[in-house]
Design a protein around this nucleic acid. Structure first.
Ligand SMILES: [Mn+2]
Ligand SMILES: [Mn+2]
Ligand SMILES: [Mn+2]
Ligand SMILES: [Mn+2]
Lengths: 218, 218
DNA sequence: ATTAATTTTTAGACTTGCCTAAATATATTT
DNA sequence: AAATATATTTAGGCAAGTCTAAAAATTAAT
């Protein structure tokens, strides 16, 4: 069994491993968890003793298969709870993360299985992120950043890169929600901003925004 | 804001105050929480500093109005989650307590308000215990122990005194559920056992059982 | 009213998880 | 290849929460 803190470390390493390919550095973890490198060094030793990470001093850390499974299960719980909050309790997608951070640590296999069933076995959370299955496998769907589209290409919104409340509320304000179709009308060379059509609206989108919105090419 | 441990102490004192009238003793709290008296002494000082209990050395402890409100809110959350687990996730009434012990500490007013609404604003939990409202008020319903009934009296099951898994499973096995009507056919002087009619069945009930089942006289 | 038993508090220690500051190892420049 | 900069670990300390053992207060018994 793992403590709340251990679970948060495992989850952080899991998320970092999805984008990095080499071992995860102490600093990277400290940064992700908003803690200090020395605290990370301490915790890594405990995780190594519990055989959820492989650790060579100064060489960074890697999840073992067990570690991956434990971490994926926490992510699974986090995302299922997010779906629950949106689908059953009328939360909006920018309100769910902090509550899910708490709920993901509740220990009860039956609870999470029944929740999964209640929600109809969803495969994605409200931000378009995949929900790992019980074994920790995720169904990777092909997606691209909106910023990689060229003029006249069209696509469907499928996810966000930045799940901050600010960004999500911005998208709400602009009427950009998952599932909506986007067409790139213009691409400005100077600042890489885009003129897009979304629904019946035309919108100017800065490069910063386009770099945080995932789409699926059509 | 209160830590998980502080919340558990407040809840324990709250439950003890419902049956005791004098100040709650250190030992009583230690016993309730399965901890040591010395740990309780330590914690009581912290709770006193936070003005949720009134404490005079060696004289036991009493919840302040703030303390009562905080404690009632934890009980409210515990019982709402129990209803959720039974009503929405198909848990049986003997499986919910341990999970609710975890869920009661989740901090999100919106979560609990929306959960309340999803469940249709229930007033009782699966064990027949009252759910405090947002201000911490509980609606005390009149109820008696089955053991206090006399021959030929009839009543309806409304709650349990012992919520242990063992007792609840025993009730399930005997087909005794909340809402069922009971008629006392015989009362044995020798051992205070009862012969009851419940539904179409006749059952012999020991005094120990009758002392742990609440009914409402009809 | 003493003495004995029980309850409660205090003293000191331990674990977890975190921190700062210092030491050491690795990486980058010159 | 040295020197410098950066990253990581170690050393020592702190707060929360718990424990055992000892001291002090309260309660019960003689
Ligand atoms: Mn999230
Ligand atoms: Mn999410
Ligand atoms: Mn309960
Ligand atoms: Mn209950």
């Amino acid at each position: 069994m793992f403590t709340l803190s251990e679970e948060n470390y495992l989850k952080a390493i899991y998320h970092l491993e999805l984008v990095a390919n080499s071992g995860i550095s102490t600093n990277a973890i400290a940064n992700q968890l908003e803690t200090k490198a020395s605290s990370v060094s301490d915790m890594i030793k405990k995780l190594s003793d519990k055989e959820v990470v492989i650790y060579k001093k100064y060489k960074g850390v890697t999840l073992t298969n067990l570690g991956k499974k434990v971490a994926a299960n926490i992510v699974r719980k986090h995302r299922l709870w997010e779906v629950f909050l949106v689908e059953k309790l009328n939360f909006s997608w920018d309100e769910v993360h902090d509550v899910a951070e708490q709920l993901e640590h509740i220990k009860s296999p039956k609870l999470i299985n029944q929740l999964d069933a209640l929600l109809g076995f969803p495969t994605q959370d409200p931000h378009g992120d995949p929900i790992p299955d019980k074994e920790g496998n995720i169904n990777v769907i092909e997606k691209s950043l909106l910023s990689t589209l060229n003029k006249n290409e069209s696509a469907v919104c499928v996810g966000v890169n930045d799940s901050s409340s600010d960004f999500l509320q911005f998208l709400d304000k602009k009427g950009i929600t998952l599932g909506k179709k986007i067409v790139v009308l213009e691409k400005e060379e100077f600042d890489n901003s885009l003129l897009i059509k979304i629904g019946t609206e035309q919108l100017s989108i800065s490069n910063k925004i386009a770099n945080n919105l995932y789409v699926q090419r059509k």
